[in-house]
Amino acid sequence: MHIFSPPSMSLRFVPVWRRNLLVWRKLAVPSILGNLADPLIYVLGLGYGLGSMLPEVGGVPYIAFLAAGMVCSSTMNSATFEAMYSAFSRMHVQHTWDAIMNAPVDLDDVVLAELAWAASKSVLSGVAILAVVWLLGLSGSVLSLWVIALLPLIGLTFGALALAVTAMARSYDFFMYYFTLLVTPMNLLCGVFFPVEQLPAAFQAVAAFLPLTHAVAIARPLLLGQIPPDAVLHALVLLAYAAAGFYAATVLFRRRLLK
């Protein structure tokens, strides 16, 4: 197999995905609560605290504006953490991948399984926030159900990008660069906390290239009961990031582990 050949995709990833699911099931309740606590504090703290001092943002109360941002951002964070810290532990610390590759499962299958798992776990986080948003009455539209279909795409996008980073990591410290250089800027520039239009033109231009912008651009109208303009275009941008990230991750893992 050439190092640059396209990832081989097969259902052999399923048992590896199930392995991660079995581990997660043992810690499911603390894991969900842990994933929920952080974004919930943001929604409530910023939404009610900051929101009470603000006029309407984008034509709605601030907390309703913030909801879509937090759904996207916490889905991104969940996929990112899983594909970086947890996948790195399995690959580098526990040597779980080595054990799996002695069975009739290839590295490509393992990478696909990690991507699918990171996306699955992030969907759970996203759905948990979404449930809170509904319970708080921040979105009453039937259209908001479509966000559930968007969550896997967000998970695949950020899971794939994070896996490419993991493939290059020598230690956990390496992940700080990705958080500092990409995750934090995305959380602040991509319309999670305030409309992108509030930023200077140069920042807006940067934001237009960042994947989280496109996730928020689909989720926010849906939660507010509108059909998102250019939804297909935004989805294609996310899909392109997911495909590029997955391909890069596959090539980088092959270079690292099959040498």
């Binding site: 779980t96 799996i100 069975a103």
Partner: peptide
């Protein structure tokens, strides 16, 4: 490289699935 998150029996079960 046994799976530290699993019991003895689960290690065998999960590994068998890879085959």
């Amino acid at each position: 490289n046994l799976d530290p998150d699993f019991t003895v029996g689960e290690n065998l079960l999960v590994y068998g699935r890879y085959f």
